[in-house]
Design a protein around this nucleic acid. Structure first.
Lengths: 195, 195
DNA sequence: GACAACGTAGCACGATCGTTCGTTTTTATC
DNA sequence: GATAAAAACGAACGATCGTGCTACGTTGTC
């Protein structure tokens, strides 16, 4: 873990908020500096390239998501409650203000190799692991059928969130949330494969 | 429908390809002009603002998706085959080269009101309708259970595609495709809700 | 209180952004 | 082949991009 002084944290927090509405690429150092209230060069000195700034925003995003959503869920007793707590938090995280910088970055950089994409890949995998683990715990607790593969469920659930985001935020579909909840139920119940 | 001369179509086709790798915002008129092989101002004259260019790229994307993927599927006999043909085409469309400009734009503009967002919303709704209709046809043909709501299935399926895209393209997960297929099976089969 | 280290500001760089303008080249019409 | 219309061009605009450099102010240490 890296040392972080007060100013740098304040910058990152502002950058995080800004990135939620404009993404990582359209976030410019000039606009960020104006919003923070300091000079472009003074801000720039904390990071030594825009690429590094983007990476640290992703880091900050991950840390915020973990402490605000994952950590509280982990405190719940082992079982499906943890998973649902994460999902509730995630939905709120998606709905409230702006979208998720990680998702935005994932789409922006999916075809642009580089350090940022590597960081995105890393964070996405971590998120998948969190989901997958939570599913596994729910299975072990007997809350959901053991036929279900945790990785399969995780990928499906990830899709439910992404889809919800599009339907709710872009298409402004009033039914988006209830459909999301139905989707979750479907994923977590037994699968009656007709072969 | 608008009249379109040869040059404009060529520009849009090139822009479409470029947008698949960099998105709509990072696509600059200068870089596009260079790739097309004409001057910035000459190209700019065809559209009268960058915003209009972005909208026409989205239009072009929609038209291409329709003729390349939806139209061939419609020619198949009524039933689940149509839906699966669309999904096959969509997966290939997502996997082959770059991602989908519409999806990228949806993420980029979800919190930026304006004409572009309106166009994105319009196209997404059209895509949802296409999916929903295909599901409904499959139900009517008796290929999938009638308990399933077409809109519900459409939102789920949309999520499966988005998730697949992230897992395959960003996380480079080898199992992404097979999980996607499982997800599709799950969505299209009966739901055994344990209340 | 001298001194080193650090955080921040100011200024400027070359590049590129979207856009405008006037001119030249191409195309179509008679 | 003359002429009008349309298409493409080169140059330039003011603004902003990311990034350096230098200097000034603050802070902590001896």
């Amino acid at each position: 873990m890296e040392k972080m002084n007060k100013t740098k944290l304040h910058i990152l927090d502002t950058a995080f908020q800004l990135a939620r509405t404009v993404g990582l690429e359209s976030l410019t150092i000039g606009s960020l500096a104006k919003k923070v209230g300091m000079s472009k060069s003074g801000l720039f000195a904390h990071f030594h390239s825009k690429e590094m700034l983007q990476i640290m925003i992703l880091d900050y995003t991950d840390k915020t998501f973990t402490t605000e959503i994952v950590a509280p869920a982990i405190k719940l007793p082992r079982g499906i409650g943890r998973l649902m707590a994460i999902m509730d938090g995630w939905v709120k995280w998606t709905t409230d203000n702006g979208s998720c910088p990680l998702i935005a970055a994932a789409i922006e950089f999916d075809d642009r190799p580089g350090k940022v994409k590597i960081k995105v890949e890393e964070n996405l995998k971590k998120l998948h692991m969190t989901l997958s683990r939570a599913c596994q715990v729910a299975v072990e607790a007997g809350d959901i059928p053991s036929e279900n593969d945790p990785d399969q469920m995780a990928q499906e659930i990830f899709g439910h969130i992404l889809s919800y985001h599009l339907y709710q935020k872009v298409m402004r579909d009033k039914s988006a949330l209830s459909r999301f909840e139905t989707s979750m139920k479907n994923t977590l119940s037994v699968k009656g494969g007709q072969s």
